[in-house]
Design a binder for these strands. Structure first.
Length: 258
DNA sequence: ATGGTAGGTCTCCTA
């Protein structure tokens, strides 16, 4: 089984890229974030024709938005509200074999790394606290957590550790917070399980003149599994070339095979 | 220290 997570940054604008990914990679399950698409405008027909007959969607106008596209049935489609909000940052479903899939879009957190003056950063830290508390109950279930977590936890998940210590996505309070979530849930980083060494990124800013040459990336997108299924992880890849496709997302797809 | 790009929507917000 192959699962892919991708922050698509508008599923309608980039539908051709989604179809290309599905054709080239043929994942069993594709989890999208930032669809920016209300449910009544979701491009069902094209995805149905691509063979993804099972779709869970949860969108809103303009911001956020989640989707799970699958070749196999999706059961018990559900979501939780986080930090007392109803924004579309979580969507979950269960596969035939009982594996739970949780698709997340953690708040980016704004620019100033101080929760006292930056409400968006406070929101992000509150989200992490709730994720930690929720994770305690996931340890014994066969679960996969994927998504744009907007945190690059390791030194080699960013292009320059020291230069990014005060930059949101790599501040100690975030990286330690994410580590606490992993410990609480017994989550295993499936990508680093397969690629334990070296620089690895899944996001490159639109603002760079030449993202590929500069290569100032961060690993913001993740695929985790709980302990009961960690030995099933067989391969992991970041599809870096998708960042170079025509009119790309600023995120590359992250792929795990189990 | 600064400004750089992109998408959606209604003039600016979020990333």
């Amino acid at each position: 089984m192959k699962i892919i997570t991708w922050n698509i940054n508008s599923v309608r604008l980039r539908l051709p890229l989604v179809l290309r990914l599905l054709a080239e990679q043929a994942p069993d399950v594709l989890c999208l974030q930032e669809t920016k698409c209300p449910d009544d405008k979701f491009p069902h027909e094209e995805l149905e024709n691509a063979g993804y007959h099972h779709r869970a969607i949860r969108g809103e106008k303009g911001y956020n938005g989640m989707a799970i596209l699958s070749k196999q049935p999706l059961h018990d489609i559900r979501h939780l509200n986080w930090v007392g909000r109803e924004d579309c940052r979580h969507l979950a479903a269960t596969l035939d074999d009982g594996t739970h899939i949780h698709n997340f879009y953690i708040p980016a957190g704004g620019d100033v790394a101080d929760p006292e003056v930056n409400d968006k950063f406070a929101h992000k830290l509150d989200f992490l606290d709730e994720l930690k508390a929720w994770s305690v109950d996931q340890t014994d279930t066969p679960s996969i957590l994927v998504g744009d977590l907007n945190i690059a936890p390791r030194h080699d998940d960013v292009w320059h550790h020291k230069q990014l210590l005060k930059i949101i996505s790599h501040t100690p309070v975030e990286t330690e917070g994410l580590e606490a979530v992993m410990v609480a849930g017994g989550w295993q980083d499936a990508v680093r399980q397969m690629i334990p060494e070296g620089q690895l990124y899944s996001w490159w800013s639109y603002r760079a003149k030449d993202w590929d040459a500069a290569d100032k990336g961060r690993r913001l997108d993740h695929i985790w599994v709980t302990s009961p299924i960690k030995t099933r992880v067989k391969a992991a890849t970041v599809l870096r070339q998708a960042r170079g496709w025509e009119q790309p997302s600023d995120h590359a797809p992250v792929i795990v095979e189990m």
